[in-house]
């Protein structure tokens, strides 16, 4: 037989749990809600070996928006994409780490154009929705840049992925 006192004790515990568990508060969101294209700058040393290229005080400017970034990591930076159109343009002012190069002149600037499609993606009730992107192409001017390569075209909340390599 089970004692009635057991039940009374459990009732008290249950009421305590009910009071503690019943309020609905939005959980904090730990996922990035705005995703970006991760870029890296390189140069070729020989035919196949690539090494990081560090730019000195580069600036990365999103054309058609007031967004302007001074890049702290000189060889790794990111570009946001517009959810309203299918292409987004960015301007790189490289400021080479080479005192002989005329890096501050407009002739050294390059424009990157990312072509993309966007997909509305549900992250969670805490974070809501976000746009993820698929890169369909990238074009650049070649004032300072030698070439450009898409290495991964899925732009989502995976922070460890590099999407585009830029060779100087």
């Amino acid at each position: 037989m089970i004692k009635r006192a057991d039940i009374v004790l459990l009732l008290c515990m249950a009421l305590g749990v009910a009071v503690l568990s019943c309020t609905q508060q939005r959980s904090p969101c730990f996922e990035p809600k705005i995703v970006s294209v991760a870029l890296g700058t390189y140069r070729l040393a020989g035919d196949t070996v690539e090494v990081d290229t560090f730019l000195t005080d580069p600036e990365f400017i999103c054309i058609d928006t007031p967004l302007r970034q001074t890049i702290s990591a000189k060889n790794r930076f990111s570009a946001l994409l517009s959810p309203f159109v299918d292409s987004t343009r960015w301007l790189i002012i490289p400021h080479y780490d080479d005192s002989t190069a005329p890096a501050t002149l407009p002739e050294a600037y390059d424009t990157l154009t990312f072509y993309h499609s966007q997909k509305l993606t549900f992250i969670s009730n805490a974070c809501g929705y976000a746009y993820y992107y698929t890169l369909t192409g990238v074009k650049t001017t070649y004032n300072s840049i030698d070439s450009i390569l898409i290495t991964n075209n899925s732009v989502d909340n995976n922070a460890s992925t590099q999407h585009v390599k830029i060779y100087y």
């Binding site: 928006t65 967004l67 946001l80 959810p83 549900f122 746009y131």
Partner: peptide
């Protein structure tokens, strides 16, 4: 009804 906040390009909203 959802809204996506984006301080750079502007907010978007829609309905699933």
């Amino acid at each position: 009804y959802y809204e996506i906040e984006n301080q750079y390009f502007g907010n978007t909203s829609g309905m699933v």
